[in-house]
Structure formats: structure tokens, C-alpha cells
């Protein structure tokens, strides 16, 4: 094994590290089952590559973008199935989806932002919850990959949350009222410039925290799981029972974390909207 590693020019540990990084970062291949182990589906990295305002933007479909498309497709299929079965007395699958929607409305939206605003932002909150949930869980099925373990994806979701939060604030207080809100009442005039900076930092810190929290949580679980698998290559086959036990435990934990992080992201976004919408704080 050491000889083979030397053949590749890297130690086993380094190769394991490469393997882990390869699995958690985005890429241009999709490892579908094929006759040969080393021949994944190659995605075209130059499908849609352009320069805009001096920025190099490559919008070719990478693995995580593909996963997002699949997640969106799954949600649309779910939506069509549920829509056909919407009834006064819910049944089967649609009542399960309905239970989640009602949970988001009654346990997340209404307590944080009140009944009226909850109606306005429920579409956003439901989509956020289900999209993040499906993306999280897709990393746990074979050939899947965790799009929410990609900082670009979580940044996109956080930007979406940022836009919705600002929109909610301006809708509630008016554009001028919203910017006036940057200086809280009762602050001395000389302190106002400082307060504006502090408030702006708070506004930006919220989505930044959302972005990093989701990304780090999703990556961390996978790193642990892949490290346990990598342990087999480093320590030999004898360690398999241990890694298998821990691996299954981590897998179950990841399912829980997938639900939990989707809930936390939705809950915090709802809370931030509520802070602006539900009156002065």
C-alpha cells in the first residue's frame, strides 16, 4: 500500500485528505454507477462561461448545481402530487406535507412575526425549509451530493434571506422609515454615526451567520463520515467494524442534522423578519 501510495506521489493520509475534499467540494463530475470505477459522468465546465463587469462568471452546471436542479425537480413533483390531493380532510402524503407547512406557519412564522405577516412570508419560509431539507438529505443518498455543503449555495440562500428581510423591513416601515430605523430612538445625536455602523454590521452579520452555519454544519458531518471511511485505508481492514458502527451512527445523526439545519435556517430568517415587522424592539 505504501508502495502504491509512493507510486501516486502522495502518502495514504494525503490521498485520504484528497478523497474527503473531493467529496465535499463542488466538481465537474457526477459519480453515477458505471462499469468502470474511475469514469464518472463528466459535466461540461465551459457550457456557459462569460465575463461580466470584469468578473469571471462560470455558470456551467456543476455537480452541486445539478443537485439543486434535482432537488427543485423533486420538490415540484412533490408539489404536483400534493396539489392533486389537497382536500378538506387530508390523507396520506399530502397530509404529511401539510403537517410541515402547518408547523412552519404555527410554530415558526406566527410566533416570530405575528399572524398577518406570517401569511405574507409563508411561501418564502416553506420554500426555504423544503429546499434546504431536500438538499441536505440528498447528500445522504448514494450518488447524491450535498449542495448545502457548498458555501456558494449557502451564500445564495443567505442573500435571498437578506433580500427578503430588507424587503420586509421596507414594506413595514417605508424605505425612509427603514433607513431611519438604523438609528434607534433615544440615541444622542453624536452617537448616531456609530449606531448606523453598528446597525449595518448587524444587518450584514445575520445573513453571514446563516450562510456559514448551514455550510459548516453540512460539511462537518460529511467530513466525519468520510474520515471514518478513510480510516479503513490508513489502518487496514481490521478497523472496519468500528468505522461501520460509527459511520451508521453518524449517518443517522446527519439525517437529524439535515432536518435541524433546515429548521434553524427557516426559524432564524423568520425571526429576523419578525424583528423588523413586529414593531419596535
Amino acid at each position: 500500500m505504501v508502495e502504491n501510495a509512493a507510486h501516486a506521489g502522495k502518502s495514504v493520509g494525503e490521498q485520504v485528505k484528497d478523497m474527503i475534499l473531493h467529496h465535499i467540494t463542488n466538481g465537474w463530475e457526477w459519480e453515477l454507477p458505471s462499469s468502470e470505477w474511475a469514469s464518472p459522468v463528466h459535466l461540461n465546465p465551459n457550457l456557459f462561461h462569460f465575463q461580466l463587469f470584469g468578473l469571471d462568471i462560470n455558470m456551467s452546471v456543476s455537480r452541486h448545481v445539478l443537485m439543486m436542479f434535482i432537488a427543485a425537480g423533486l420538490l415540484l413533483i412533490m408539489g404536483i402530487l400534493v396539489r392533486r390531493k389537497i382536500a378538506l380532510i387530508p390523507k396520506g402524503f399530502s397530509s404529511a406535507v401539510e403537517a410541515f407547512v402547518l408547523f412552519i406557519r404555527d410554530e415558526i412564522a406566527i410566533p416570530t412575526m405575528g399572524k398577518h405577516a406570517a401569511e405574507q412570508y409563508i411561501s418564502y419560509l416553506c420554500t426555504t425549509f423544503f429546499f434546504i431539507l431536500v438538499c441536505n438529505l440528498m447528500g445522504l443518498i448514494p450518488y447524491g451530493s450535498t449542495a448545502t455543503g457548498n458555501i456558494s449555495v449557502t451564500a445564495g440562500l443567505a442573500i435571498m434571506a437578506f433580500l427578503v428581510i430588507q424587503f420586509a423591513g421596507m414594506r413595514k416601515m417605508g424605505v425612509l422609515g427603514y433607513f431611519g430605523h438604523l438609528v434607534p430612538h433615544g440615541v444622542p445625536a453624536w452617537l448616531a454615526p456609530v449606531m448606523v455602523v453598528v446597525e449595518l454590521m448587524g444587518i450584514l452579520a445575520k445573513p453571514f451567520a446563516l450562510c456559514v452555519r448551514l455550510f459548516a454544519n453540512m460539511v462537518a458531518g460529511h467530513v466525519v463520515l468520510l474520515s471514518l471511511i478513510g480510516l479503513i485505508f490508513v489502518m487496514g481492514a481490521a478497523i472496519i467494524p468500528v468505522t461501520l458502527g460509527f459511520g451508521i451512527f453518524m449517518y443517522v445523526l446527519e439525517i437529524f442534522v439535515g432536518f435541524l439545519q433546515a429548521y434553524i435556517f427557516t426559524m432564524l430568517t423568520s425571526l429576523f423578519i419578525g424583528l423588523l415587522v413586529a414593531g419596535e424592539h
Binding site: F48, S152, L157
Partner: peptide, 20 residues
């Protein structure tokens, strides 16, 4: 990665509009 980020915004935005 800007491309992935833009894709996220597009996919999420469309999904939200349709699912809503």
C-alpha cells in the same frame, strides 16, 4: 463561486414563485 451562487438565486427564486 459566483456562478454557483447565481444559480442558487435563480433556482431558489423560481422554485419559490412556482411552489408558492
Amino acid at each position: 463561486h459566483p456562478g454557483t451562487l447565481i444559480w442558487t438565486l435563480i433556482i431558489f427564486g423560481l422554485l419559490m414563485a412556482i411552489m408558492g
